[in-house]
């Protein structure tokens, strides 16, 4: 598994434009697939294995998976400046658009139909979030240990309204213990 640190010759500017396009065109989730397509298939900056290694690392780190992944890939292909370029570029288009939308909705008297439209969007958002949770959860719900941890976590936050630090403080040790390697083989 150990890999020599390769030095690559992609310019930070090229990283910036690639991630700027990604940031502007991936909408409504599924950004990981877009990033893989661009970085592995189109540009050929890294192998699939290397991409999955970065992706796996992102899942153990706090923060947004997409920005973390951008930082890791930017760093691997173009060093520190590449990491900075990738992160700024991936956020810029969405950040600008969302600020514009918020200014419009919170400052002016927006017409009533736009709010009705947003309520429709809200209903779809709940469905999106729910299916995303189920997609990840499907593999876990069959395992009673995993299911218990899912339910306990839900109870902590959804029912008892415990804060996130407190919930993690309780659930992480519990989960690490319940899934300690010698017990949970699967």
């Amino acid at each position: 598994m150990s890999q020599t640190v390769k030095t690559r010759t992609v310019s930070p500017l090229k990283v910036f434009t690639t991630f700027l396009i990604l940031g502007a065109t991936s909408i409504g989730g599924g950004m990981m697939a877009h990033i893989r397509e661009a970085v592995v298939v189109r540009e050929g900056w890294m192998s699939d294995e290397e991409f999955l290694e970065c992706y796996g690392l992102c899942q153990t780190l706090p923060g947004l998976n997409t920005t973390n992944l951008s930082v890791l890939i930017g760093d691997r292909v173009a060093g520190g400046w590449g990491a900075l370029a990738a992160m700024l570029a991936v956020m810029a288009p969405g950040g600008g658009i969302v600020l514009g939308l918020a200014t419009y909705f919170l400052n002016g008297p927006a017409p009533a139909w736009t709010f009705a439209g947003l309520k429709g969007v809200a209903a779809v958002s709940v469905a999106l979030l729910f299916t995303a949770a189920l997609k990840v959860g499907r593999k876990l719900f069959g395992n009673s240990v995993d299911l218990q941890i899912v339910l306990l976590t839900f109870l902590c936050v959804g029912v008892f309204h415990l804060s996130l630090p407190l919930t993690l403080g309780i659930m992480l040790p519990v989960s690490l213990w319940m899934k300690r390697p010698e017990v949970a083989v699967c």
């Binding site: 991936s26 909408i27 950004m31 947004l64 969302v98 947003l118 969007v121 958002s125």
Partner: peptide, 10 residues
């Protein structure tokens, strides 16, 4: 929900 209408990280 405004965020859902914008591209990029969620």
């Amino acid at each position: 929900n405004l965020g859902q209408l914008a591209p990029g990280p969620n």
